[in-house]
């Protein structure tokens, strides 16, 4: 078995809330998250706001440190590195952000924006070499050299996201974390950017951690997928298998809730959890006993309240954190 590109081990991140006048509180954004990402794949992370997916992205980018746990990127623990080593390591992982209007400095020209990550290289390339790399990269993402001297406001959302992707790829990283990278794009442009990501994976072997709330998008491009709920990974496996037959009720809830051009009118009633459960806010409580999804779960039973399910293998390559996974397996899709 080859070693994975990213090995995330028991990652936990707590945020201290409150302040001078508010009651101090602790929110757990990531709760004992363990997962691996193979090199050369697109790995989707699906979850709703507050599930911890953006915290995960920030920690993977070493913009934030975990409360406990470790991230091993390409054999090296990210948080044991000295600042200098971390700086050098940064060429291997880059990020594409959600908002194509906020992630590009409006006062800089495209050429300078795209070249920014070259800052991490030990040997700073010459001006000419820099320019050459920027031009090659712009062409690789479907923009042309003439556009390098323009400012971001002269581009559409889709083009801006291409610029952001070019910036992320300029150091030839092994990993690109894409946090809702296509969510803000129009449908006709979204598919173009998704195709670009698939092509970059195929042609350059770039690994993408593709974070989104949109199942259809993940289904279209991802090889593997992980589903997060309240800071935990509740299901993982090959994307196709997970969406065809979810093994966690939350994955099913997400899939059912997603509107589709083939679902007309009011959706057929599903076994619904108690009304009060629907109202439960999507914030994290303190780590307690029982399953975090319990209040919203149609399958909830007594065991779910007493014992938190751990992530376990149910089928080859398929993991889920649910006591009733076997029941999901037998239920009609």
């Amino acid at each position: 078995m080859k070693t994975p590109l990213i090995d995330i081990r028991r990652l936990t991140r707590d945020y201290a809330g409150g302040g001078l006048f508010a009651r101090p509180s602790l929110t757990r954004a990531l709760d004992d998250l363990t997962m691996t990402v193979e090199a050369g794949t697109i790995h989707g992370i699906v979850g709703e706001s507050g599930c911890g997916k953006s915290t995960l992205a920030r920690i993977l980018m070493a913009l934030d440190r975990p409360t406990s746990g470790d991230v091993i990127l390409d054999g090296a623990s990210l948080f044991d590195l000295s600042p200098k080593e971390l700086m050098r390591k940064r060429r291997d992982f880059q990020m594409v952000f959600q908002d194509p209007f906020g992630s590009l400095d409006p006062r800089q020209r495209v050429a300078r924006i795209v070249a920014e990550p070259l800052h991490v290289l030990d040997e700073k390339p010459s001006r000419a070499a820099r320019r050459e790399r920027v031009m090659a990269m712009l062409e690789a993402v479907g923009l042309n050299a003439a556009q390098a001297e323009r400012y971001p406001h002269e581009f559409s959302g889709g083009q801006r996201q291409r610029i952001a992707i070019a910036r992320a790829l300029i150091t030839e990283p092994k990993l690109v974390v894409a946090d809702e990278a296509v969510s803000a794009l129009d449908l006709s442009v979204q598919a173009q950017v998704l195709n670009l990501i698939t092509r970059l994976k195929r042609e350059r072997g770039v690994t993408f951690l593709f974070i989104t709330h949109n199942l259809a998008v993940v289904d279209a491009v991802a090889d593997q997928v992980g589903v997060m709920y309240r800071g935990r990974l509740v299901e993982s496996g090959p994307a196709r298998a997970v969406f065809e037959r979810p093994l966690h009720p939350y994955t099913r809830v997400l899939a059912d809730a997603e509107p589709s051009v083939t679902k007309f009118g009011r959706p057929p009633a599903r076994p619904a959890p108690p009304a009060a459960a629907l109202a439960a806010p999507l914030t994290h409580g303190p780590p307690g006993q029982g399953c975090a999804f319990l209040p919203r779960c149609p399958l909830a039973g007594p065991r779910c309240a007493a014992e938190a399910p751990v992530l376990r293998q149910v089928l080859p390559g398929r993991q889920t954190a649910c006591h009733h996974a076997e029941q999901m397996l037998c239920a009609p899709a």
């Binding site: 913009l63 971390l86 990020m95 992630s103 590009l104």
Partner: peptide
Amino acid sequence: ARDFILAARSAGK
């Protein structure tokens, strides 16, 4: 608070 600052930090600046 803008994302391009995060991008710059990701670039190790």
